[in-house]
């Protein structure tokens, strides 16, 4: 690791101020990606601003039809939260399957979304549930937040402060883990909104990062049942291919995991 200056921010304003001072600052919110990359000397930020200890950025609030998870809340807390389990059980379940216990104690929802790894779990839930990403500057609809591999709508120095999820009528997540990394080789999140709309998002599958899956959404709108996907075909074009899974295999997984997500949603 190269030398860097570490700052533990005391507030969101403090984090923004510290960030501006550095020549090449990075926010740290759990460090499940940034720290390994730094250890391998593949990243050399001048300053690392740790936002994960800011009290205003940790916690879960459920009111009415909205679940709000503050950005520095670790995955473990989301997985264990009775309120989340009651309101959006698929979200708690998703959090319980991220990485391993050590990752879940440290990794945070804000860190995961800001990093936007194409195989991360949370982006699928955010996109399928139509969540809103709140930052220190604005509110960004999920639709506008994800911009491709490791790329988001966040501007330099902008901090995610919370994510608000509308409580759906039904939701389910099914993940097929990469055998080596245990990231999602393909994960599919299905949601039926209280207004009756169906939204489906897949992670790990597309060359463009998390994506909506139109053919599955249409089939489920007509008939909310796993069997409704039997005749659906997912195109392999544009999907990722690597040593763990070819594009046609991932296309199959989008469908099969979609079916299993519907079964999990009930």
């Amino acid at each position: 690791m190269y030398e860097t200056n570490y700052h533990r921010a005391s507030s969101i304003d403090d984090a923004v101020a510290q960030f501006a001072k550095g020549t090449d600052s990075k926010f740290l919110s759990g460090g499940q990606t940034l720290l390994p990359v730094m250890k391998q000397r593949l990243a050399a930020p001048s300053d690392v601003i740790d936002v994960a200890k800011i009290k205003d950025m940790i916690g879960i609030d459920v009111s009415g039809d909205t679940v709000t998870i503050k950005a520095a809340t670790p995955h473990y807390d989301v997985a264990q939260s009775d309120a989340v389990k009651k309101a959006i059980p698929a979200l708690a379940s998703l959090a319980s399957e991220i990485g391993d216990p050590a990752v879940r104690y440290r990794g945070t929802i804000g860190g995961s979304l800001a990093n936007n790894d194409p195989a991360a779990d949370y982006p699928a839930a955010v996109l399928a549930l139509g969540a809103t990403v709140k930052t220190n500057k604005r509110s960004i609809p999920a639709e506008d937040f994800f911009k491709g591999l490791f790329s988001t709508a966040l501007e330099d120095g902008e901090i995610i402060t919370a994510v608000s999820f509308p409580v759906p009528a039904k939701a389910g997540y099914a993940k097929f883990p990469n055998p080596a990394s245990r990231f999602a080789l393909t994960g599919v999140f299905v949601a039926k909104t209280k207004a009756g709309d169906v939204r489906v998002a897949a992670t790990g599958a597309s060359q463009s990062g998390v994506m909506r899956v139109g053919p599955i959404e249409q089939a489920l709108k007509a008939n909310w049942a796993a069997s409704a996907l039997d005749s659906v075909t997912i195109a392999a074009s544009g999907l990722l291919a690597d040593i763990h899974g070819s594009a046609d295999y991932r296309a199959n997984l989008v469908k099969v995991m979609g079916q299993r997500a519907v079964t999990a949603a009930g």
């Binding site: 097929f176 055998p179 763990h244 899974g245 070819s246 295999y249 199959n252």
Partner: peptide, 11 residues
């Protein structure tokens, strides 16, 4: 025999 290989061997 990864899942990808087994799936292709089946299908």
């Amino acid at each position: 025999a990864t899942p990808d290989r087994v799936w292709h061997a089946i299908h």
